[in-house]
Design a protein around this nucleic acid. Structure first.
Lengths: 337, 337
DNA sequence: TTGTAGGCGTTATCAT
DNA sequence: ATGATAACGCCTACAA
């Protein structure tokens, strides 16, 4: 059919000025009730819809938030995005999606395109290998605020929401100690990761609280590949002290380690208990679900990060009032099968 | 800093007309090499970036595709969206996301907002309970093409990509028959679902191919809740014929059924074999992974649907040349643990 | 080869 | 209470 109706069209039919129509549609106070009704009636009749692209252009605002994250197929991120979407939608924002697939080059390109699309702000969780942040620094020039979540960069003067693994780790190790375990292995992640260091610190603190000695040789590292995890587990199994519990970096690592141990004839959750960090759904269907797992609140992280971004956009928050929110992780005892 | 530079700005500095600048930037053939270089040099120097919102407005096109789907935390959809995103990005389109969370009202609202945002086209997988399609019909008026995928509506004259469960089911049942199973139970989904009917047909055809009789009492239904599935399984276990294999509606159903059977003392994959339809990742970590599972190619579905939509947008495909692509599902033997 | 002018739909400013 | 007009940034006939 013909072009969609515009306020101009309505104005012409009613012999009014476009400005009058615009005001009438917005229920501007000093527009005569009569004309207001007329205008609104005709608008309804013509099924008038304001042209958002015109409004975006005119207002220099798109009511769109860009989301850049590594991988939606990771349960953590798909939960986080629900928090983002729900919060954004409440304020009439839409969500533009880009997955970096943990590739820095792709991340850079996505940010560039989103900048061009004139998103009002950006929510970012870094690709695994991203160590340079020029593509984010550059956004300052364009006045596009960024809030990082979960995988945050090692930069000053940024907004972020992240979870602190230390608290959950302390709780996890404490639980094991309380259950009588004395030789607890930890399969940690890459040493350069903040999250790995937090786990280590948590382990140490939990031991310290009970006046027990922390044994660094029980804290082994995996680069998170299956092979590395199996080696790490093997290392723990051949430790001179006999371990009775393992804290694994995450559910994937946990499962790989469990598999390896089972192959070695270990009785899971009997000879050795496992505790992990929640990122697999449906753990109740797993062959050997962890005894307990550390919850990282992905939905909440997404929600908080979005709230900060929206506050930044509405001016409720000054651009340089850097928000750095840390959400304590927490141990959750697995429901028994 | 000041406002971002515009072609007007560049024109003024170079004493040129904006049109000349515009053309120079686009490498229009009949612009003098000299001025072209000048313009491009200055543009670079000022870090000129075209204002996309102005272009969107002027061109009545946003290079944005709207995606409406039930739930990203379902592995099927997070895989599908990668196919969508990758394909869209190749053609410089961005992806606007909306999850219906299987709520029709929310689906309607999302479609409305996306229409207002003037997405160029829509990719949709229906909410579970959606049975009225007015919110999609209405898009025709706005010339916003829609391509449905996976969960498609019962409508004529639409574009869609879906998978056919029949082929995979035939293969699954045939495999079981070939392995000597003669009494095969099926835990199917809600009867009104096309996908359920396809499974039934597949079952029948596989039996027919071997000149065996199809026994309808072996094909029971679940509404996909855990409870219903357990009842269905119980029904199968108390069948007068002793079943030795089960084809479950999907991985979730399969796991619930397996759990129930195990509780009854059944030896899984020994007394009774399970075959399922792939939607859980990491099946290798499951307690009792299915013997084999029917693959539905989510990435491919997303990709194909997007290709159709892009062809529609580029005019390569006429709006009424309805594409209805069916991708045959296929049985995949599970890798042994 | 370059310039002029108009328009995309809306809002906002300034008159009347 | 309403109207006229400009402005947002870009593109594209049409003119020169």
């Amino acid at each position: 059919m013909p072009n969609p109706p515009t306020i101009k069209e309505i104005a012409k039919r009613l012999n009014l000025a476009t400005s009058t129509v615009s005001r009438a549609l917005h229920n501007h106070p000093r527009i005569g009730l009569k004309t207001r009704m007329q205008v609104q009636a005709l608008a309804r009749e013509l099924q008038y819809e304001p042209n958002q692209t015109a409004i975006f252009f005119q207002q220099k605002k798109t009511f769109t938030l860009g989301i850049v994250l590594p991988e939606l197929s990771e349960a953590f991120f798909s939960a986080a995005i629900s928090g983002i979407e729900d919060t954004a939608n409440k304020s009439n924002y839409m969500v533009l999606l880009g997955q970096s697939h943990d590739d820095t080059a792709r991340e850079q390109k996505i940010v560039e395109i989103m900048k061009n699309h004139r998103v009002d702000g950006l929510l970012v969780s870094l690709a695994r290998n991203t160590v340079q942040y020029a593509h984010f620094e550059m956004l300052r020039k364009y006045n596009i605020p960024v809030v990082f979540f979960d995988r945050i960069p090692d930069m000053k003067d940024i907004h972020y929401v992240a979870s602190n693994m230390e608290s959950g780790t302390i709780q996890a190790v404490s639980l094991l100690l309380q259950q009588g375990h004395r030789v607890i292995g930890m399969i940690n992640g890459p040493e350069k990761l903040i999250a790995s260091r937090q786990r280590t610190t948590g382990y140490q603190k939990a031991m310290q609280q009970q006046r027990l000695k922390y044994d660094a040789t029980l804290n082994v590292h995996s680069d998170l590949t299956k092979e590395a995890t199996r080696q790490a587990m093997q290392q723990l199994l051949s430790h001179k002290r006999k371990i009775t519990a393992v804290v694994a970096f995450n559910d994937y690592v946990s499962q790989d380690a469990v598999q390896y141990a089972a192959e070695q004839g270990i009785q899971i959750n009997k000879d050795i208990c496992f505790v992990s960090y929640a990122n697999l759904p449906l753990s109740s269907y797993m062959a050997y679900p962890p005894l307990a797992s550390v919850e990282q609140y992905p939905y909440l992280q997404g929600q908080k990060a979005t709230e900060i971004l929206l506050d930044l956009l509405s001016g409720k928050l000054a651009p340089d009032a850097y928000q750095q929110i840390v959400i304590d992780s927490r141990l959750v005892i697995a429901p028994k099968k």
